[in-house]
Design a protein around this nucleic acid. Sequence first.
DNA 1: TAATTTACATACACGCTGTATGTAAAACGA
DNA 2: TCGTTTTACATACAGCGTGTATGTAAATTA
Lengths: 226, 226
Amino acid sequence: MARATKEQSEITGRRILEVASALFADRGYAAVGLTEVATLAEVTRGAIYHHYASKQGLFQAVTAAAQQRVADEVERAADSCPDDWQGLLAGCRAFLSAAVADRNRRILLIDAPAVLDWTTWRAQDGAASGRHLVEALTTLSADGVLRVRSIESTAALLSGAMNEAALHIATAPDPGVTLDEVVDDLSRMLGALRSSPVEDEVSGSVQDLGSGAVSVVGGQEVVADQ
Amino acid sequence: MARATKEQSEITGRRILEVASALFADRGYAAVGLTEVATLAEVTRGAIYHHYASKQGLFQAVTAAAQQRVADEVERAADSCPDDWQGLLAGCRAFLSAAVADRNRRILLIDAPAVLDWTTWRAQDGAASGRHLVEALTTLSADGVLRVRSIESTAALLSGAMNEAALHIATAPDPGVTLDEVVDDLSRMLGALRSSPVEDEVSGSVQDLGSGAVSVVGGQEVVADQ
DNA sequence: TAATTTACATACACGCTGTATGTAAAACGA
DNA sequence: TCGTTTTACATACAGCGTGTATGTAAATTA
């Protein structure tokens, strides 16, 4: 059989990864066998084991790619904001939006913590979106805008809150939890961490978040109409 | 071989469940085979499949038991509080404390969402600890103490926040995230959801929980007596 | 007490992961 | 350019784990 060149090999590797990503996202890690991945990628299982060390290794590459996609969107959203505080809020909204996406949801929020061991998963998360959150909280804390007991614990709380919320947004029965509702309630909670409310920022951040109804940034004074 | 009576059969079922619970909690669902469960329970795999429909069915029974344990502790803590707001905070602390326990952590926080399908898992969670959270938020909202956009989204945010925080508390490198830090930061966030500080309701923690600006030390002292 | 159900044990079929081996062409050095 | 080495897979095989079918003796029931 004709052997492929280096570039073709790389293409094969990506094709395997994309096929696996789609299958894992659709039916979960355990329910997908490598034979199915191989056939859909038009290779044999031998090719998979040539490009990736194991099924876990393939999955880890899949999660890394998904993490990167989410992190890119978060960074893009945060960077387009004038100040750090709005950047944090925009980043949270971007994370929610990206995590809800079909290609990322099951992989990142459900399977990854169970398949990958804790240290591996934490390292990947820290290298991607988690790092942004910690950095944002750190600078805000250093600037005196944020007042928290522990940045690490706050980051964990926020990260977990958004993860779980993303799942509820995605698999909502009929009109269940919506993204706007979550962003609204999350903004209220974040507002509590501000050392002092800044009035004039409120108006600008409302349209910035685009949450449709009402957003709460400076304090918790705004009430949401249905 | 001598066949067992009904009572002995029930005992056998519980022994299988306890052995499986310990193994799943220690090494995770995927890494534990039913042969090991059988040998440690001093039965054969046939006995397991007689008492439980499948490996998933056994795991579901394990998760239900763990959920029950956690829910019991949460209810006990919440009921021993004078008012509903403190009950919420105490319940959150109790949940964190129970979720960190070795017997519950991996089962409830890592494996269950991946092994059980979403509807099954949500139904079990709603029947146990999740229900308490929603009920607490509902009554607080009805009494005007709580001001949120959506109770469901808030419950999801809080639940996810505590889940992730519990993992960070449990697997913390050296002096990592501690329970007190998490409870403190969580209390700050929850403080933002109070519609307005009620003077006569909470004696000591009037100004601290009402606005997110000021420190939360007073509010934490109420809950964190440990 | 005879019939039936129960509470397991035993044996087997099947799928999936991982590994060892084979192979032909690409990459590489002289 | 030519021989050697490495690469990029395909093929074949071993082992484990779930699930299921079957057997069996005692407990339960009529």
